[in-house]
Simulated assay, not measured.
Amino acid sequence: MEEVNQTTVTEFILTGLTENPVLQLPLFLVFLGVYLVTVVGNMGMVILILFSSQLHTTMYYLLSSLSFIDCCQSTVITPKMLVNFVTEKNVIPYPECIAQFYFFCAFAVAECHMLAVMAYDRYVSISNPLLYKVTMPYQVCFWMIAGVYGMGLLSATAHTVFLLRVFFCKANIINHYFCDLFPLLELSCSGTFINEVLALSFSAFNIIVPVMTIVSSYIFIIVSILHIQSTGGRSKAFSTCSSHILAVVVFYGSLAFMYLQPSSVSSLLQGKLSSVFYTIVVPMLNPMIYSLRNKDVIVALKKLLENITFFLTKNHFP
């Protein structure tokens, strides 16, 4: 037992996306740009909704929560990945690795449920527009958001508690650009059956339940739209949920592409690339999808910029 303890892993080495030195600098610049756009876009959306009174509705509070989740998820992964492009070995201590996995899992699960909650909100908005404020008051919005974060924290805590019981020795090279569950379990010197069962159970719940909620909501939404008499009313109803449909397709499409891959050595690089799309690119795309396809957001942004310009002009040129 004493000899085993001496080989206990205290740090891991992340292999990153590529070991080709020619690609290191270009990839660093690309992902740095993606990360900056992600932070500016998502935090800009949060600030815009916070300071625009016309956006103080349940729909936009949920959207600001989604933007916050996307920004946090990207921040958990991208900065450490950028380090890998400028250092010879991207070393991550064991506690930091576990913490990275915990927060990534929490925000990933939260996004799954947040998209489901947003789909239900769209259903209520379209099926009962006159009773929308009564059905979806701020208190309901608060508890739905709390439930979304609660599910994320519960899943992350359960995974992390059982991951802490896994024993790592000797092998410490993670064939990934961040500390994900299965790459970590591949390095285990102890049994991982419980971890795999837990991963399957939570994955099934956190994917199937939100997907079923989204599908059910949009079935009812389509039925409600078909009952609208005017063409203009149908077009307006569809435009209110088109952005969410696009976000759902992009998110779950990339998620399915990442996990429905053959488990073979030849697919490791492809798995990394699909993971990049899910963990880094999608958080960048969401604010673009909602801002460019939403007239209320565009109007609120123009008004906020006008107020800022007026304030700066007034203070610099009295």
Rank of each mutant, 00 (worst) to 15 (best):
S201L: 12
G152P: 09
I222D: 15
M151W: 14
S188Q: 05
T192K: 01
W143R: 02
C141N: 10
N206S: 03
V161F: 13
L163N: 07
G233S: 06
K133T: 01
E186M: 12
A204S: 10
H227M: 04
I126F: 13
W143G: 02
N206F: 07
S188I: 00
V134I: 03
E186A: 10
H159D: 13
A204V: 02
F205N: 04
S230D: 15
N195S: 07
G152C: 07
F142D: 11
F202R: 01
C179M: 10
F205Q: 02
Q229P: 01
A204P: 06
L200E: 07
K170T: 04
N175F: 02
C169K: 03
Q139T: 05
V209Y: 13
F162M: 06
L200D: 07
K170D: 10
A199H: 13
G150V: 03
L226D: 15
K133C: 05
I222E: 13
C141W: 07
V140M: 11
I228R: 02
C169L: 03
F193Y: 08
Y123F: 15
M144Y: 11
I173E: 14
I225D: 14
T135Y: 14
Q229K: 08
S190T: 02
M151N: 01
E196S: 11
Y138G: 02
I194G: 02
T213V: 08
N175Y: 11
F167S: 05
L130R: 04
I214V: 06
Q139G: 06
C141P: 08
Y123Q: 05
K133N: 13
I207Q: 03
Q229W: 13
S217R: 04
S155H: 05
I214P: 06
T213Y: 09
S216W: 15
N128P: 02
Q229D: 13
L185Y: 14
T192S: 04
I145V: 10
W143I: 00
L185N: 12
I126W: 12
F220A: 03
S217T: 11
Y123I: 01
S155I: 01
S201Q: 09
